[in-house]
Amino acid sequence: MNKMDIVGRLSYKCDIIFRIIDIKIENGKKIAILYGEDFRIIADAPFNDLVMIDPQERQKRSKKLQSLEEQSLQLFRQDVSLIKERQEYEVTRGYSKESNYFQIPGKVLHLDGDPGYLKKCTDLYEKIGIPVYGVHCHEKEMSGKVGQLIDYYRPDILVITGHDAYSKSKGDFSDINAYRHSKDFVQTVREARRKVPHLDQLVIFAGACQSHFESLIHAGANFASSPSRINIHALDPVYIVAKISFTSFMDRINVWDVLRNTLTGEKGLGGIDTRGVLRTGMPFRTEINDKTEE
């Protein structure tokens, strides 16, 4: 087995598909560093615990997840359609007269420790019409860069994610030192809050698989993972951010409304009541006719 091979762990009955991203030697044994292919988890395993996943099995699992992703996307689009209908009614105050207006969804700055996941997420943001700036950054470097990035991009929503994992051998659930990158995410949230303290002026999602949810919320995140320390899907942050981006700044978001269309749900994601960030204006001109005086 080599770097970038797709593998499963025999000791876990190959429940998650991983990609080998690095190989190291410990006590004369080969150890693989693994990134989840569909879930935001990082792990390591000895080579004798790994098995190659054949392309047919990979394709089978991929189709099942794609079906779930499409289902979540369809539910989200239904939500957006209902939101737009309500907003149109409020803008026109129910008058039958047609009114031209425009909407400005919230801008997103997405920091991701995994370039592959970042590409998946930015593709989905663009697919559903959310302006996004994606930055690949190792989890340990995020806290040192986030302040400058906020100044430069001036986002309405900040996503801080990548890979994480809880290790029982390092401590219990309450011990943040037992987590791979939760401390890095927490520090990044704190640095972001030094720049923008108000929870409704910069909405923050932070965390990855099995992350220390409570610490992230206490540090200043509006939404985070993972309350039950389970794995979250690679695209879950996008579904949360999309709901916020397309909800008016006049409205508060019910936490359950945000979580119900994600792939992981309330066991993997949670948060606090937060205002939306979408703004509506008028008039909207599709074209401008220049008139010249004779």
Rank of each mutant, 00 (worst) to 15 (best):
G134W: 15
K13P: 08
P115W: 01
E85M: 12
Q87R: 14
I25V: 11
D290M: 13
P105V: 04
Y133C: 06
I232H: 03
Y179G: 03
D22R: 14
Y133V: 12
C14Y: 07
R61Y: 08
Y133K: 14
L109N: 06
Y95S: 15
N261T: 09
F47Q: 09
Y153L: 07
L50V: 09
D156F: 01
D123R: 04
G28Q: 04
I253F: 04
R193S: 01
D112N: 11
I41M: 04
D200L: 07
V108C: 03
G144W: 07
R9Q: 12
I130P: 11
T161A: 11
E126M: 04
K24F: 13
D15K: 15
H163M: 15
Y101Q: 02
K195E: 08
S228N: 07
H233V: 12
C14T: 01
I204V: 10
V108G: 00
G207T: 03
I150V: 08
G162E: 03
I53C: 04
V203G: 04
Y133M: 09
Y101K: 01
V277K: 10
P237N: 01
Q56D: 09
E88C: 14
I253Y: 04
Q71D: 10
L65N: 10
Y101T: 01
D54P: 11
R180G: 02
R260E: 15
G271N: 01
P46Q: 00
I160E: 09
D79W: 14
S99T: 11
K24Q: 08
T188F: 08
V189E: 07
S167H: 13
G270Y: 03
V80D: 02
N254I: 05
H212Y: 15
I232L: 13
S81K: 15
A234E: 13
D172H: 10
Y166L: 11
E287D: 02
I83N: 04
L73T: 05
C14V: 02
K168W: 13
M142K: 04
Y117N: 13
